[in-house]
């Protein structure tokens, strides 16, 4: 009896103590973690549509590629457009990006937030040289190989196409739903 119960009880004691300590640790770090998440999100939004306050549209109509939308208001209280978060499938897997669109349907900024593409090729979608060209574009976009205006990254056409399709999804969302908010 003792041979089974003593180890079992001691193992339980260790488990309970550990879980208790972790509970405390999780309570302590909960606030900084939440603050960090908001800060990262705000920073990304500020990069694609600067000098605004952002408010998530909770009941936004989402599609396969559009994962979240926030409404931006500039400092004098006017509607400045939308920040659309997109997830598209690229060469190495899902690619997360954020697109700022003003009320006229023009892109104010675009950033690739995370991707799993090849370093040095598809990964160059995170460089200003590539994402900068989207500023000021509107309508329906396509990469140069497909006769469009987006200059694709050398030997990373799939990634370039994926980012472009994300930009299109964002522009389409704004032209279809933008007026409602």
């Amino acid at each position: 009896m003792n041979q089974i119960s003593t180890p079992a009880i001691r193992l339980c004691v260790i488990c309970v103590v550990c879980a208790f300590l972790l509970g405390i640790c999780s309570e302590v770090t909960k606030e900084p973690i939440a603050a960090q998440t908001i800060k990262t999100q705000q920073e990304a939004m500020a990069a694609v549509l600067p000098d605004c306050t952002y408010e998530d549209i909770k009941d936004a109509k989402l599609s396969d590629n559009v994962t979240a939308v926030a409404k931006a208001t500039d400092n004098s209280g006017n509607a400045a457009g939308f920040v659309v978060s997109c997830e598209v499938s690229s060469f190495g897997g899902p690619l997360d990006m954020m697109v700022g669109v003003d009320p006229n349907g023009t892109i104010t900024g675009l950033r690739v937030l995370s991707h799993s593409d090849t370093p040095g090729l598809g990964a160059r979608s995170t460089e200003p040289e590539f994402y900068g060209q989207f500023n000021g574009m509107s309508g329906t976009l396509a990469v140069d190989k497909d006769g469009g205006q987006v200059k694709a990254i050398t030997s990373a056409t799939i990634t370039s196409r994926a980012v472009t399709s994300g930009a299109n999804a964002a522009l389409q969302w704004v032209s279809e739903n933008g007026g409602a908010y």
Partner: peptide
């Protein structure tokens, strides 16, 4: 199992701290 529980606790603590800071 005891070792694993202790180790996993420390890993979780490190993970939470990294997430936070």
């Amino acid at each position: 199992p005891c070792f694993i529980v202790v180790i996993a606790s420390f890993v979780t603590i490190v993970q939470l701290l990294l997430q936070a800071y």
